[in-house]
């Protein structure tokens, strides 16, 4: 019997498949298709202290094997989430990860404090949203910036703290090390890669925000490389994401060094993707005599 269970920073997940922030809302829409307890966990839609309306449309552009988005952290604000969505989510029998974003260190700290008072299981610090001016990514693109926000948030976060890293950087290992040194319990990567498409008829960018974040299978090799580099640099768990669409991708990501994975854009073409990936991993373990999924983490044999 394959043991799918993983433990991240003291939190137990029934399987290593988590839905990625921004792709799964607060879960209600997907709960009409399958019970959320099939998931290892949910990284909830990125939240801010106060309601944000997000960016003007169009917010979506298709790309070869992927997509750009410039949603811009549209969310009802943390208090509305706690009141309207958290009680329902707590009944879904899966790990809840609150993804929090801010425009200044004080906002991040207040969010972390407030979430720490709730039944959420973990906090994911979003210092990598590319679609919001002063929206986190300013902190996420240098080791010093990332360290400075984690240092302060750590004082307020009473829950295990995941830091979600941006791929739009020169040295991912240096950033991963910097946040580990300030007390991060785990890192998750990659957030989206900054991209752009132009309509050649109108000479206008397709996205009203001009640029947006690239996700989907197109980014998968970049994500594997960065997860491998980050996992080699730190001792805390790494959560791997970026373009995962099937069980083999999740296994590859775990061999690169990820202790768990997140699935995002794949859910837009196959809403059952995270469930199928979890089932596929279990099948693969049975076929390959792997008893515990954690056995494969970081087992890539580099040349």
């Amino acid at each position: 019997m394959a043991d799918m269970q993983v433990n991240l920073a003291g939190v137990s997940f029934k399987n290593p498949v988590i839905t990625a922030s921004g792709c799964f809302g607060f879960g209600r829409e997907f709960a009409k298709l399958y019970p959320l307890e099939k998931l290892g966990g949910i990284s909830l839609k990125g939240m801010t202290l106060h309601e944000r309306l997000g960016n003007p449309p169009p917010r979506i552009a298709e790309t070869p094997s992927g997509m750009l988005n410039s949603v811009g952290l549209q969310n009802p604000g943390v208090e509305a989430f706690i009141e309207n969505d958290l009680p329902w989510l707590k009944e879904q029998n899966t790990v809840l990860i609150a993804n929090i974003a801010g425009s200044c260190v004080e906002d991040y700290c207040e969010m972390a404090q407030r979430i720490s008072e709730t039944d959420v299981d973990m906090i994911e610090l979003n210092i990598s949203c590319p679609n919001v001016k002063q929206g986190g990514v300013a902190f996420g693109t240098s080791p010093e910036g990332a360290a400075s926000v984690v240092r302060e948030v750590r004082k307020h976060a009473k829950k295990p703290l995941i830091v979600k890293l941006s791929p739009n950087v020169a040295d991912i290992a240096a950033i991963a090390k910097a946040v580990e040194a300030e007390g991060a319990d785990a890192v998750s990567l990659i957030n989206t890669l900054l991209g752009m498409r132009i309509d050649i008829k109108t000479r206008r960018p397709i996205l009203r925000n001009n640029t947006g974040g690239l996700s989907g299978p197109a980014v998968f090799p970049v994500a594997v490389r960065m997860v491998w580099q980050a996992a080699n640099a730190v001792n805390i768990p790494v959560i791997g994401l970026g373009g995962i669409e099937k069980a083999e991708d999740a296994i590859e990501m775990m061999m690169a060094g990820a202790s768990a994975v997140q699935v995002g854009a794949a859910m837009f073409y196959d809403p059952y993707a995270p469930v199928k990936i979890a089932e596929g991993i279990e099948q693969w373990m049975n076929d390959n005599g792997v008893k515990n999924i954690s056995e494969i983490v970081g087992t890539v044999k580099p040349w």
Binding site: F24, G25, E29, P56, P57, R59, I206, A265
Partner: peptide, 26 residues
């Protein structure tokens, strides 16, 4: 509108609307 999930989870297909109090939202 350009759309992704189709079910209201990704918030991609925003469209400017007026609330009852007349203020704008997406």
């Amino acid at each position: 509108e350009r759309m992704a999930c189709g079910i209201g989870a990704c918030l991609g297909c925003a469209c400017k609307t007026k609330k009852e109090d007349g203020s704008s939202t997406y």
